[in-house]
């Protein structure tokens, strides 16, 4: 059987039941493809065993880049390229450069991080998401289990696992 084609879905209404279900299913040795929710469920990523997002590191690197760029630009323009006496200040009037440096740090940090987020989460205007159940943007949480990945279990057994994990509905979904 091919991967990413046939799924069995457990539908949940309550986020706390969902959290318990995820740990139960993972304890049974079933590999969860992904969990889909209408809102962020705190702690779900930990229960699913996901690593912490590295986006803060991206934000830091882009911010640092902004700081360096802003300082380089200002020192080059004001001290080296065309020095001018303004208010009797030093050409390289470092305190005057702080506001622009701060703003450019924030600007690059925010845009860089959001850019990385969009790319890493595959978000783009022409993006066509795999929709397992239309209700996941409304009021239901869905645990998707890939049948091919869990071939050692078989459909019947997976359905039983979901049932014992208090799924309110158990559905199947196939993608072409």
């Amino acid at each position: 059987m091919e991967r990413d084609k046939n799924f069995i879905l457990g539908v949940y209404e309550d986020e706390d039941v969902l959290m318990n279900a995820v740990s139960k299913i993972r304890k049974a040795g079933v590999k969860i493809h992904e969990v889909y929710s209408p809102f962020p469920v705190h702690g779900l990523d930990e229960v699913l065993g996901y690593n912490r997002s590295k986006l803060p590191i991206a934000a830091f690197i882009f911010g640092l880049l902004g700081t360096i760029l802003a300082l380089t630009m200002q020192f080059y323009m004001m001290k080296f390229d065309w020095p001018m006496i303004i208010g009797g200040k030093d050409f390289a009037a470092f305190p005057s450069f702080i506001p622009v440096t701060f703003e450019m740090t924030v600007l690059l940090s925010a845009f860089g991080m959001v850019g990385v987020f969009l790319v890493s989460s595959n978000l783009k205007p022409w993006g066509q998401p795999k929709i397992f159940d239309l209700r996941i943007t409304d009021d239901k949480h869905v645990i998707a289990i890939d049948l091919a990945v869990n071939a050692n279990f078989g459909e019947e057994m997976l359905s039983d696992v979901l049932k014992s994990a208090d799924a309110s509905e158990i559905n199947k979904k196939s993608f072409e």
């Binding site: 992904e34 969990v35 889909y36 929710s37 209408p38 809102f39 962020p40 469920v41 779900l44 990523d45 699913l48 996901y50 997002s53 986006l55 987020f117 969009l118 890493s120 989460s121 595959n122 978000l123 783009k124 205007p125 022409w126 993006g127 066509q128 998401p129 795999k130 929709i131 996941i136 943007t137």
Partner: peptide, 12 residues
């Protein structure tokens, strides 16, 4: 933007 509501996306 092709939002899918996955737990990984929410975490990010």
């Amino acid at each position: 933007l092709g939002w899918d509501g996955a737990a990984r996306t929410w975490s990010r």
